[in-house]
Design a protein around this nucleic acid. Structure first.
Lengths: 189, 189
DNA sequence: GGTTGTTTCCTAATATGCCTAGGAATCGGG
DNA sequence: CCCGATTCCTAGGCATATTAGGAAACAACC
């Protein structure tokens, strides 16, 4: 019987797709192995175990997400950049729910530092604020506010937390407008 | 050997405490049974299974949370009510991480409707906005914004998403101030 | 092309967790 | 005291994660 030709990269990519299909916490070694026509024990040649796979998927998702966010804000500034960033943020969460859930998985500090994704996203947030002229400590507060709003909305939307009949798109746009307004008036609040 | 005297209520209360200690997704029937000095199979007389336990803990947490939020806003209005609500929201999330995680567990619609907790929390959010004079659709957008910001901040804080050195309390206060400002200027944004 | 060493994948086995079936002990009402 | 109902138990099945060790495929070298 020929070999399946597994690699850590192929496993992680397939696991990320699988997570988007069935949910990050339903991601199991058995179903991942089945996707490659292989026994689950065979995966241990390429990954250390389930926890390792989870971390690798998280890092992959953070990288892909950073790419998407970076592309969205490229060539834009101020309100246009904020809006594009926000939409790319929410789009990633809704189109890749498994990957998005993975980004909240607690990755070990060493691996997180070794990978660029997470830091790039934070950096993009700070870059977003250049159009609003904030002090350093204000910028940290503002980045936390942006991330809280974006993450909270995306997470509540993904987990069915919003039940009112009104359009989620409309509420989202309103939230982004409100953030722009807040950032504009930051020093006078 | 005398009986352990289990009841669904005792099990759910202990499960909620356990979730706060070890995390909602590490909550297991084996460790819950051990806490009562009982075999895991014995729990099935009182609960239907793990999924049922998860739902019951979620409903308990929603009720307790609604109580805390209701007490915080009682007798206050406007900015003071918003601030008290926000602090009670975050305090619940940080002091009861397992219960807080449980509130995001997808409970079946029937049970959710049968219990008052979730609806009371949403209702409190709307009540919070009476001081700001918003139209009906605006109120829905505003409630979604409030919940997004509160949930996003609490969740990122709980999962270690904030790493900058600045005080989280200070950033939180700033976020609440920003929301007050947004609500005040809502119609002009 | 054959040989040899390495890597990949397999089978086998253990541990833990959820869950069901059926039996024994305990409790409470007569 | 006894009888019915309930509670808790043992035993077992199934799924998953994980380790150990063996066989087959691959690759490099003669």
């Amino acid at each position: 019987m020929p070999r399946a030709g597994l690699t850590p990269e192929a496993l992680v990519a397939a696991a990320a797709d699988l997570a988007d299909e069935i949910g990050f916490d339903h991601l199991t070694l058995a179903v991942l192995a089945k996707r490659f026509g292989v026994r689950d024990a065979s995966l241990y040649t390429h990954i250390r175990g389930l926890a390792d796979l989870h971390e690798r998927v998280a890092l992959l998702a953070l990288d892909e997400w950073a790419d998407a966010l970076g592309a969205a804000v490229a060539g834009r500034s101020g309100r246009a950049a904020l809006s594009a960033f926000a939409d790319a943020y929410r789009a990633f969460a809704t189109e890749h729910p498994g990957r998005y859930a993975a980004t909240r998985f607690p990755v070990s500090p060493e691996r997180l530092a070794a990978s660029a994704g997470a830091a790039r996203i934070i950096e993009l947030c700070y870059a977003l604020l250049r159009g609003y002229e904030l002090s350093e400590s204000a910028a940290t507060d503002a980045v936390r506010l942006l991330r809280s709003t974006f993450h909270g909305f995306s997470d509540l939307e993904a987990t069915g937390g919003f039940t009112a009949g009104r359009s989620l798109d409309a509420s989202w746009r309103r939230a982004v407008d409100a953030l722009h307004h807040t950032l504009t008036d930051w020093s006078t609040i």
